Simulated assay, not measured.
Amino acid sequence: MSFYVELIISILLVIGGVFLLVGSIGLARLPDIFMRLHGPTKATTLGITGVLLASLVYQSINQGSFSVSELLITLFLLITAPVAANMIAKTALHRENPAIPRTAGQSLVERIRNRDAADSD
Rank of each mutant, 00 (worst) to 15 (best):
L12G: 01
L12P: 02
L13N: 13
V14E: 06
I15P: 04
I15N: 09
G16A: 15
G17C: 11
V18M: 11
L20H: 09
V22A: 13
G23K: 07
S24Y: 10
S24D: 01
I25L: 15
G26F: 10
R29Y: 02
L30T: 13
P31I: 06
P31G: 09
D32E: 05
F34G: 07
F34N: 00
M35C: 12
R36S: 12
L37Y: 12
L37P: 07
L37C: 08
H38L: 10
G39I: 02
G39M: 02
P40V: 03
T41M: 04
T45C: 03
T45M: 02
L46V: 08
I48V: 01
T49I: 03
G50V: 00
V51C: 11
V51F: 14
L53Q: 02
L53H: 06
L56W: 15
V57F: 14
V57L: 08
I61D: 04
I61G: 02
N62L: 05
Q63H: 06
Q63N: 04
F66R: 00
S69I: 06
E70F: 13
L71D: 04
L71M: 13
L71R: 09
I73V: 15
L75S: 05
L75M: 08
L75H: 05
L75Y: 01
L78F: 12
L78I: 15
A81M: 03
P82H: 08
A85K: 11
N86T: 04
N86H: 15
M87E: 00
A89H: 14
K90S: 14
K90G: 07
L93R: 08
R95V: 14
R95H: 12
A99T: 05
P101M: 08
R102V: 11
T103I: 07
Q106S: 13
L108P: 00
V109W: 08
V109N: 04
E110A: 14
E110L: 11
R113V: 04
D116W: 09
D116I: 04
A117S: 11
